[in-house]
Amino acid sequence: MSELQSQFEQAQTDVTKLSERPGNLTLLRLYALFKQATEGDAGGDKPGLTDIVGRYKHDAWAALKGTSQDTAKTQYVELVESLKAGAE
């Protein structure tokens, strides 16, 4: 397993142990980075008008189109580390 993959998996564990829940925009960024890191570019249909949360999630993920999975993992790890340090 690569060093980056180990850091990414540790960040996934660490994010569940944060002392404070991140704000909605930060949670959306974490979601989008995680999806890009694990699945690559967003695919499938955009959720319907009645699924507002789903649309926001899809849009945030789609905004990362073209970002490599390794870059997304690195950004995810960096974001989790900044949250652990108390910055948001």
Rank of each mutant, 00 (worst) to 15 (best):
Q69S: 12
A42M: 13
T38N: 10
G54Q: 01
T74W: 04
E88G: 05
Q5E: 14
T26R: 06
L30I: 01
T16Q: 09
Q5F: 06
A60Y: 06
G66T: 02
W61M: 01
A42P: 15
L30T: 07
V15C: 03
E88C: 02
L33Q: 07
K65N: 13
T38M: 13
M1N: 15
K84I: 10
R21N: 13
K57I: 05
G40F: 03
A63K: 09
Q12N: 11
G48L: 04
K84S: 12
S2Q: 11
S6W: 03
R21A: 12
T16N: 08
D45W: 15
G40Q: 00
L30F: 11
A60K: 04
S82C: 00
L64S: 08
Y31H: 09
E81F: 07
S6F: 01
Q7K: 10
T50P: 06
S19E: 12
T38L: 08
G43A: 04
E78D: 14
L28R: 08
L64M: 08
E39Y: 04
E88K: 01
T26I: 09
E3C: 06
K17G: 13
L30G: 08
L79H: 04
A72Q: 07
T16S: 11
G43S: 09
L27R: 14
Q69R: 15
N24P: 15
G66I: 00
E3P: 15
S82R: 00
H58G: 13
Q36G: 04
S19T: 14
G86P: 12
L4N: 05
Q12M: 11
L28P: 13
E9Q: 15
A72V: 00
S19Q: 15
D41G: 02
R21Y: 14
L27T: 07
L28G: 12
G48M: 06
P47T: 00
G66W: 03
R55G: 07
A11R: 00
Y76W: 05
D41L: 00
E20G: 10
D70G: 05
Y56W: 13
A62T: 10
L49S: 06
L79G: 01
T38E: 08
T26V: 10
K73Q: 06
Y56F: 15
E20C: 07
A60P: 12
T74R: 14
R29S: 15
